[in-house]
Design a protein around this nucleic acid. Structure first.
Lengths: 158, 158
DNA sequence: CTGGCTAGGTTCGCTTTACGAACCGAAATC
DNA sequence: GATTTCGGTTCGTAAAGCGAACCTAGCCAG
């Protein structure tokens, strides 16, 4: 790493004008990110989310309330087979727009914390090309609806 | 959002195999993200970071220790003018690789929490093209070293 | 119609962490 | 040699996280 002789004393953008800082008020902690990860996969039932990420019920309840209040997800009714009407949580458009952030984080984790192999294959629904979330020219950015996510079968070695 | 008749009960990737989940162990909270934001801008002195993000000293101290332990930043000596040698924190390569994640988050915050205007202009150092962090074909992904970050002068209206 | 089961929570007591003010130590400067 | 600056540590209090126990509505079997 290059050692700067002198450090800048302030960031070019103050916190109140920074989209990232604002975003962190809506997604402030690990639990919220993990819940959004589940919602991204469509796992939207209280008990299922709880089981997947091992979060205390009281905390899950509080986080889901915040997530709904912040407009990232909605409570949606559904009926599972013949049973009664229940409800689960579904990402709003605003919430779905966070998916690339989660995928960017996943890519970082895969390459820097695992052996570089991703557990997901991202491809273009239209062309079948492999996709990534990365720095790119603006006019090369693809809309989320082009994204297809497939799990990559595990090969044993982590 | 489309209401699914039934929710999947599990995610296709379990937490222990998920890069995002792993990443969240290194960057678990708001403070850590905000500190990394400062380091991204080169703001690396303890007192400066503290002033910028209004974090308690004790928490900043603890977080910086974790960040260094996790290999995201190094303590680097520097000399400011005629003064004595001090030290500050500088992102490692691994830490710099998180910059796109921060930029993705910033983009989300700019478009969904502000009026869509970014406070930063991202351009290709080589071609001058405007850049973004977004879903893109793998072969369109640009390396970080192509990235140039410039603040956009504020226009008053937030 | 009664007792049990399930989903989706709430409540409660305990432990952990965050917070912020006060203090500390080393080097440079006055 | 007293004072300032930087980069912390220590402390007491306040808030949050945690997990076990409890609660409620609706359906289902007997």
């Amino acid at each position: 790493m290059s050692n700067p002789d002198v450090f800048p004393r302030t960031a070019p953008v103050p916190l109140h004008a920074c989209g990232a800082a604002r975003a962190l008020e809506m997604v402030p902690d690990r639990w919220t990110w993990l819940i959004l990860r589940e919602l991204m996969y469509g796992v939207g039932r209280f008990a299922d989310i709880q089981a997947e990420i091992s979060i205390p019920k009281s905390v899950l309840s509080a986080r889901l309330t915040e997530i709904v209040e912040n407009g990232l997800a909605d409570k949606a009714p559904y009926r599972d087979g013949t049973a009664r009407t229940r409800h689960g949580y579904v990402l709003t458009r605003k919430g779905r727009a966070l998916v690339p952030v989660i995928l960017a984080l996943m890519h970082w984790g895969d390459t820097h914390l695992k052996d570089g192999k991703s557990a997901l294959a991202l491809t273009d629904k239209r062309t079948g090309q492999p996709l990534r979330v990365a720095l790119t020219p603006e006019d090369r950015a693809l809309p989320l609806r082009r994204l297809r996510i497939d799990p990559v079968p595990e090969n044993g070695t982590d």
